[in-house]
């Protein structure tokens, strides 16, 4: 079911959307601190109102060409995750009534492909995104370095 209101944003020249209720804040880029042992699309950790929040470059995670723009940070609702996504730009809030068509998509990360006045939009399934990030972290266990290797 399509949410009542969507937040549109762009990454790697593609349009995406989140259910507006899943996003708690849109921020300007801020100081980010590197975090060891994570895949390269993790840009590091930011301090979001006291919550230590992982910052992930969405385009890079999706295997798309990340653009060298300052971009914006989409902070996911802190009740759901401690995650912020770096995206290129954040557009408008879209009312469900403006959607002219919807079709399913093979990618499990995509809830639906929506036709909107702004063009074709991939509605992201947040739970799938979080599970994917978690599985990847569980898979990237630390190097099994045997004692002796300095």
């Amino acid at each position: 079911m399509t949410p009542q209101r969507l937040l549109l944003f762009s990454a790697a020249r593609q349009l995406f959307a989140f259910n507006l209720q899943e996003v708690c804040e849109v921020m300007e880029p801020q100081q980010c601190y590197p975090f060891a042992g994570v895949p390269p699309h993790y840009l590091g950790l930011i301090n979001f109102h006291g919550n230590l929040t992982a910052l992930v470059d969405l385009a890079s995670y999706l295997g798309l060409q990340s653009r060298p723009l300052p971009g914006k940070l989409l902070v996911i609702d802190t009740r759901l995750a401690h995650l912020a996504l770096k995206v290129d730009a954040v557009g408008s809030i879209l009312d469900a009534g403006s959607i002219t068509g919807a079709s399913s998509h093979d990618d499990p990360l995509t809830e639906a492909l929506l036709e909107t006045p702004q063009g074709s939009v991939r509605l992201i399934r947040l739970e799938a995104l979080l599970s994917g990030l978690e599985q990847e972290l569980q898979g990237s266990v630390p190097n099994d370095a045997k004692p002796g290797g300095t």
Partner: peptide, 21 residues
């Protein structure tokens, strides 16, 4: 929180006096 809470070998995070995490 999610997703980093699933990472093996990390017990949490903290902020140092200069704000560094």
């Amino acid at each position: 929180g999610r997703p980093l809470s699933k990472m093996a070998g990390v017990a949490g995070g903290a902020t140092l006096g200069d704000g560094e995490i």
